[in-house]
Structure formats: structure tokens, C-alpha cells
């Protein structure tokens, strides 16, 4: 999977980034842009004390819960709207409305209406993502090939087998696309939700260090969390991609 000739440009780009950071920090000599080694020291301490893994774990839990919720509800809405012209006409305007409500408004209203509780936080994140999933899956189910559906109908496959063998494989690129963009969007919104109304998680910690003007800690949390998201991308999405496309020439 990791061949040397494929990985060296990535390594080179990583070290170039570090070098630029180092040079910039040395030139500025400011507390507001710490040296890479200072950030790595904070990272090391944070992992040794267990503080960083604890908060990343909590944030990941929220990301996972709202991701699953948003994908399930968004897909159901999108597929239904893609298959039924009536539903599409009825709710198209709602979809546009929800697509354009700012994430911050949804979060504030969720906390105001339901209180500063875990469920409100997760719901707020999911509601932000649901319209995107719905729009993508609606596109996907509009593009379903009629030839295969007719085949399924004339051989009387029934709705369950038709869905599993004829519909789902055609939707899988759309699922993957919205899952990918979903993960990127959701973890950023989760941080905001934590900043505004939770007392743990990466977003809460970032807020704390912001108030202390502790840039080294802010960068340490950011790096750690981005690294986790990259790992998720590599171990979950790439293999799924390959699996979904293995039948192509």
C-alpha cells in the first residue's frame, strides 16, 4: 500500500511545511507563533497526561453520532425525494431553506430550545449536515438506470432484493461522496458546538486556550485532530472506494 516512490513527495511536502514554519517562527520571535518543537512538546505532554486523547475521544464520539444520524436521515429524505416527484415538489423549498440556514443559527436555536445538553449538540450538528446528504442522494436516485429497474421488475425481484442489488450499488458513489464531505464538515461544526455549549471535547479545549492566548496548545490540538481525521480517511474511505469500484474495468 505504501510504496516509497509514492510516499516521498508527501514526506518532502511535510518537511517543507515544517521548515517554513520553523523559519517563520524564528523570524517573528513571537509568543503568538511558537516554534514547531514547542508545539510538539505540548503534544507529547498532552498525550502523556492523557488530556489530549480524552478530549479527542469525546469529540470523535460526537462526530460519529451526528455523522450516523445525518447520513441515515439525509439518505432517507434524499432517496424519497429522488423517487417521488410529489415529495420533491413539496419539500424542495425546505431543502433550499435548510441548506442556507447558517450553522451557528442552528446551534444557537438547538441550545436555546433544548438546553445545553448532549442531545441538543448532536442534533444541531446533524441538522446542519442532513440537507447536504439529502441533496446528494436525491441526485443519485434521480440518476438510477431505468433499464436495471425494469429488469428487476420483470424478473419480480421484489423491493428488498431490488434495493440491495440494483439500487444500492448505483447509489454507493453518492453515499461515499456525501460521507467524505460530511466528515470534513461535521468535525468542524462539532468544534463550534463544543465551544458554545459543552464542557469537554477539542472545541472546549481550544476555547480555553484561546482565552489564555496559548497558541502552542491550540496548534497542538489542531494537529492531533487533523491527524486523526486523515487516519479515518485512509483506513475507512479509501478501502470503501476500492470495494465500491472493483467491478469497473
Amino acid at each position: 500500500m505504501f510504496h516509497l516512490h509514492a510516499i516521498w513527495p508527501r514526506l518532502a511536502s511535510f518537511f517543507l511545511f515544517l521548515l517554513l514554519w520553523q523559519l517563520g517562527a524564528m523570524a517573528l520571535e513571537s509568543r503568538l507563533l511558537p516554534l514547531p518543537e514547542a508545539v510538539f512538546a505540548v503534544l507529547r505532554d498532552g498525550f502523556q497526561s492523557g488530556e489530549i486523547p480524552h478530549h479527542i475521544g469525546i469529540t470523535l464520539g460526537r462526530v460519529a453520532a451526528s455523522f450516523v444520524l445525518a447520513m441515515a436521515i439525509g439518505s432517507a429524505i434524499g432517496i424519497a425525494m429522488g423517487r417521488s416527484r410529489l415529495l420533491d415538489r413539496l419539500f424542495d423549498a425546505w431543502l433550499v431553506l435548510f441548506l442556507n440556514v447558517p450553522a451557528l443559527v442552528v446551534i444557537l436555536l438547538a441550545y436555546v430550545w433544548f438546553g445545553l445538553i448532549e442531545a441538543a449538540a448532536i442534533l444541531a450538528v446533524a441538522v446542519n449536515k442532513i440537507p447536504n446528504v439529502a441533496v446528494t442522494l436525491r441526485e443519485g436516485s434521480r440518476a438510477l438506470d431505468r433499464d436495471y429497474l425494469e429488469m428487476a421488475h420483470s424478473f419480480r425481484l421484489g423491493s428488498l432484493r431490488t434495493f440491495r442489488h440494483v439500487v444500492l450499488p448505483q447509489l454507493s458513489p453518492y453515499f461515499l461522496a456525501s460521507a467524505r464531505s460530511g466528515l470534513a464538515l461535521i468535525w468542524k461544526i462539532v468544534l463550534v458546538v463544543e465551544l458554545l455549549g459543552r464542557s469537554d471535547g477539542v472545541g472546549f479545549q481550544l476555547h480555553l486556550y484561546f482565552q489564555l492566548f496559548d497558541v502552542a496548545s491550540i496548534l497542538a490540538y489542531t494537529l492531533a485532530f487533523v491527524a486523526v481525521v486523515l487516519v479515518i480517511e485512509a483506513v475507512c474511505f479509501r478501502p470503501l472506494d476500492r470495494r465500491a469500484l472493483r467491478w469497473r474495468r
Binding site: 436495471y148 442489488h165 450499488p169 467491478w247 469497473r248
Partner: peptide, 8 residues
């Protein structure tokens, strides 16, 4: 057109 499912 044979209409075989290409993913099976």
C-alpha cells in the same frame, strides 16, 4: 441490451 448488473 443484456442488462446484466455490472457490479455483480
Amino acid at each position: 441490451n443484456p442488462r446484466l448488473l455490472p457490479w455483480r
